[in-house]
Amino acid sequence: MVKYILNRLLVSLITAWVLVTIVFFLVRLLPGDPFLSEKVTPEIKANMMRYYGLDKPIHIQYVTFLQNLLKGDFGYSLRYKNRTVNEVIKQAFPYSADLGIRAVIFATIAGVTLGIIAALNRNRTWDYLAMFIAIVGVSVPSFVIGPLLQYVFATKLNLLPVSQWKGFSYTIMPTFALSLGSLALMARLMRASMLDVVNQDFIKTAKAKGLSPFQIIWKHQVRNAILPVITVLGPVTATLLTGTFVVEQIFAIPGLGKFYVLGIQNLDYSLVLGMTTFYGLFLIAANFVVDIIYGLIDPRIRIAK
């Protein structure tokens, strides 16, 4: 297990390094010189020069950049006067994390449940219904489902608050809109995995032991079927987190996504790149955690590596 963790950690670190290196060179490829545009105050410009060491040779700049990141410093915003990316993250990330965690939990539980229901009723009404929900969920983007929910539940029915983030009733629509796609993906995956496992020989063995259908399903089928679903938790987290860009816009949630989109629209490249680096590193870390969870659940991985 220790060897497995170290292996995953090494891969994560290499990935993180590749990511930040890409970011560093992309900054240098940016059209024109965004740091020197007229909108930037001298004060910020001085900060930028200091931060990136822009007057020094490129390899020194690269080292400075890496050192800054190691210190947990993601750079400056061009627009928000003298504000660092860290300050923006500190202020906005809690909202995004709150929304994201709700969505991951909801998507996983609801998706897995839907997949199990579908697989156990294969080719019957419940299966068709669950898979219809799933394929619609995969096909309807969050920026469609979000406004649709607002239109129906807030504007027309007046059941839920239209937007903002001030309590549980405010979280329902954003969470649902954000998680629907991932929920659907996991439901489809869980169903396929359940149907795959049910044809495995060890299910025959379990039946031959005289176990009841309930015991076979829970102790043998679901436990093995859930493994491939866990592997997508990493990518799903990534999808949900990038999905917050859109959902936060729609529901006026003061999270990171809102700043991100604003940054793009205001051509605040420095903010966008800093935040992208942060997102990327966060997701690499999330992937690492998922790998560890996977290793804990699947004994084959734990010992093989």
């Binding site: 020989d201 436990r223 699947d298």
Partner: peptide, 19 residues
Amino acid sequence: RGSEISMVFQDPMTSLNPT
């Protein structure tokens, strides 16, 4: 099943629950 009649299958690699 399993108590009065039981069965051994062909492929032991896949007949046991891996987890």
